[in-house]
Design a protein around this nucleic acid. Structure first.
Lengths: 363, 363
DNA sequence: CGATCAGACGCAAACGTTTGCGTTAATACG
DNA sequence: CGTATTAACGCAAACGTTTGCGTCTGATCG
């Protein structure tokens, strides 16, 4: 910057003001300075700038892992709006308890960023306490942690809606597929979606057999393994609610391999809005992950712009039932014989009922 | 830091040295300082530190988009080794030509990072020129750009291997599925994989019908649409080489819907090592994306540690043929009738021939 | 025409580290 | 015991901005 100032015959203060379009600089001087800067390929040093003004112009996005549709989609949406807002995005992957502990212990992002967005990150209570030392805005996307401002869907309502949808089709034996990637830490979406599931079963007077809820460690074939366990039961359910579309895809694959018609002999419904679930015609609750990410990004931008840490504490995003035909009426007999071999009944041109559900308040 | 120094009764210089384990500090003094720092929850200001020493401790990862298995996997692997190396990771998504131009024009990462990793980013020649102004190490992962050091597989060899594999099974009508997400910019992997495909067809004396190579704009159902176009041909191929596993998955779905047995009536082979392709039993060339990411990260670490910009210019990673049973002998008759309805022949416990292929030199 | 005012610009003190150099004290050696 | 050597530590100048305040110039108004 000193170079530019010398060459333009002004002081560095004027250069600083001119380049940032602040008042107090004459028009021709400003132009001269800008031209000189361009000419010298001058780029401001962010370090010096931030050291002086106090803010970093960066925000951290913390996720359990990236190679996973939900997180990648969320980060992708977040990154776009944050960058459009002139902020740089730092990504932290906290896979495994060890890394998570280290992160919360060393607080590496303190003073490195202006805000931290935790994306669907299961966190232990002790870890959550440490977040207060972060020294930055903390937001949560895709679920809830402590009392931090968050963006997410009403997971309890999703669990309820799933059971209601299946019960309305006449199903009485309804199972649920879960995956345990929380490593013992509490995660609101999983807990509340399950609670909604059980609550709705009770409300509808349907059996709530604990064998119908299977949990598999996270992996690409978790859904397949979970479905296999359900199918091995003496009296398997006739409909299954999968915690995520990824699980539903694995489950569908297993059903294809086992030659069980969907939805003829087994109804399947997931959650997310995963594009591959669309490809395979799986009915799902679209939770508009992109919208969640964009909204979170906007909240960050607003909070940082206003300076004060005032953020709307609860931001619920709508979810939609997207009926692609993987759910259907319950089979007539209870112990009906093996149905015809085949795959999903709705090949292409899937109909999208888009039963819009308005978001409900906090649980 | 001034606080710590005052409280410990030493100068800031000593604090700086003590905390970074530099020599010139007495053992008890060092311990005292460290204890004091802990007590005050002191964290170093990266801005000031970097302003003083010159390096940023950050590296930028530039990708076309994130919500995509290949990129997410690559970034994920990169992030891990870079963070383990003590570096922070900045992610830039350059979807769309506009953003790409802006990035290369404004050079936002100049002086913001010590190194830039371009992940499979198609780039125009003019844009590549501007990279010289980056003022940072530039590396390329998953392909090649100009003369920058890169990490990647031998894409030409993959194209050749695919055709050889299918030809060995007796196929004579071999198609290829491509996706165009390069927006007109050149991308080495696509170009070389295609060239390998055509070269191998010629070498094997097989027909190279241009109708057998279909390109669809990037989307989740690109593979399905591409396969549909092939099936609509008067004489469709009996085997198909998909540029990526994502395309192969879409193609498989289309074949399921159309009731065409795989590999009975149609063989299918992809590239990547996508976990979902594993789930669906799709034979593929695993290009070890994680390894590519890790290797790239290590190269960055090494280059930064050594200070000089000397990086091995070419770093080839092996690829493996993972046979999961979606390829089989060519059907006997040319115009055989509709085969039996069903899905992939190898349900679970997929065999993994893992025909290891040593990487070959440059194209 | 003198006083007032506003806009344009320079000055210099922060911001929080790092690091070369100088000083001090302690130890070792003759 | 005096001197050379070494380790421990303080001092202060960078690093490249931002920004409050002061000064100067030219214009406006009564």
């Amino acid at each position: 910057m000193a170079d530019v100032a010398r060459r333009a015959g002004v002081s560095t203060g004027t250069v600083s003001r001119a380049l940032r379009d602040l008042p107090g600089v004459g028009d021709e001087t400003r132009e001269l300075i800008k031209a000189t800067a361009r000419e010298l390929h001058y780029v401001i040093s962010p370090e010096a700038s931030q050291l002086s003004r106090g803010s970093t112009g960066r925000v951290a996005i913390v996720v359990p892992r990236l190679h996973n549709w939900f997180y990648a989609e969320m980060v992708s949406a977040l990154e776009r709006v944050l960058r459009d807002g002139g902020l740089d995005v730092l990504v932290y992957q906290l896979d495994g308890e060890a890394k998570r502990l280290h992160f919360f212990d060393a607080l590496p992002s303190r003073r490195k960023v202006d805000a931290v967005v935790l994306v669907a990150l299961p966190v232990l209570t002790v870890e959550a306490e440490r977040l207060d030392f972060m020294g930055a805005q903390v937001l949560v996307a895709g679920g809830r942690i402590r009392d931090f401002p968050y963006v997410g869907v009403d997971d309890h309502a999703i669990g309820v809606a799933a059971v209601e949808h299946l019960a309305a089709l006449g199903h009485r034996r309804i199972g649920m597929l879960r995956t345990s990637d929380t490593e013992g830490a509490y995660w609101s979406s999983d807990a509340e979606r399950s609670r909604g599931f059980h609550d709705a079963l009770a409300a509808a007077g349907l059996p709530d057999d604990e064998a119908y809820v299977v949990t598999e460690p996270y992996a690409v074939d978790a859904g397949a393994r979970a479905m296999r366990r359900l199918l091995a039961l003496p009296e398997p359910p006739t409909a299954v609610f999968a915690y995520s579309d990824e699980l539903a895809i694995g489950a569908l694959r297993e059903l294809q391999v086992a030659g069980i018609d969907v939805p003829g002999r087994m109804s399947l419904i997931g959650v997310d809005g995963h594009p591959t679930a669309d490809l395979f015609g799986i009915t799902t609750f679209d939770q508009h992950v992109g919208d969640q990410g964009r909204l979170t990004g906007q909240l960050v931008l607003d909070a940082l712009a206003r300076g004060d840490g005032a953020v709307l504490p609860a931001n619920r995003v709508d979810f939609d039932l997207v009926d692609r035909g993987s759910t259907g009426p319950a089979p007539a007999g209870t112990g009906a014989g093996r149905g015809k071999r085949g795959v999903s009944a709705q090949p292409r041109g899937t109909r999208r009922a888009r039963t819009r559900r308005t978001a409900r308040g906090g649980a």
